[in-house]
């Protein structure tokens, strides 16, 4: 029996007003469960205000290397349009973040959406993700309290809850001979 479940990419927003950014992935049989799993896996700390999930299969992803090496992918230019959300990895700096949300475009295919996004936000991205708006499931305002507030009440999960440096200084001040090195 296949127990793997489809993979959903997870986007988290640290604080209202900041862009959603990819946090990682979860597996789930549907988007609603994916949102619940995303909350359990990624929100054990009080730095999440909103979560989005989208099935990996719906995401059009291209790295700079793929775009340089591949033939230009035409995609449908003339069909009916839909909204795509655009995400981009902007730098090689070590960071927790992968692709950040930039905004949305209207296009008739993901390829066309990527061309439009490159014109609008510049071509210098390391990775592009183009996600159809219809594939995204978002946490709602009504759910926010039950999803994100519990992490606020668990200060013992934060390193600054413990004062071991101060305690070690006190130990050493009390008994300086013990400190050999």
């Amino acid at each position: 029996m296949d127990t793997q479940w489809p993979r959903f990419e997870v986007f988290e927003q640290a604080r209202p007003g900041q862009p959603h950014r990819n946090a990682g992935a979860v597996h789930a049989p549907d988007a609603e469960m994916a949102l619940q799993n995303a909350r359990d896996v990624f929100v054990r700390r009080p730095d999440c205000a909103s979560l989005w999930v989208a099935p990996e299969a719906a995401i059009y992803s291209r790295t700079a290397e793929e775009l340089t090496a591949g033939e230009a992918e035409a995609g449908d230019e003339h069909g009916p349009t839909q909204m795509y959300q655009v995400f981009q990895k902007q730098s090689q700096r070590q960071a927790e973040t992968f692709v950040n949300h930039l905004g949305s475009v209207e296009a008739s295919s993901p390829e066309a959406a990527l061309r439009q996004a490159a014109e609008q936000w510049g071509k210098g991205a390391w990775v592009w993700w183009i996600v159809p708006e219809s594939a995204i499931t978002r946490s709602t305002e009504a759910e926010a309290a039950s999803m994100f507030a519990p992490a606020l009440n668990k200060p013992y999960r934060q390193p600054n809850y413990y004062h071991v440096q101060t305690q070690m200084r006190a130990v050493r001040a009390h008994d300086p001979d013990e400190d050999e090195a």
Partner: peptide, 27 residues
Amino acid sequence: YGPYSRAMVRICMEEGFHKKQGQEMVI
């Protein structure tokens, strides 16, 4: 490798408390 590196950044941020709660107990 990007995905491994990012998982590690996240894990290290969270594990700071693991080490400190242990040291606090030993002290």
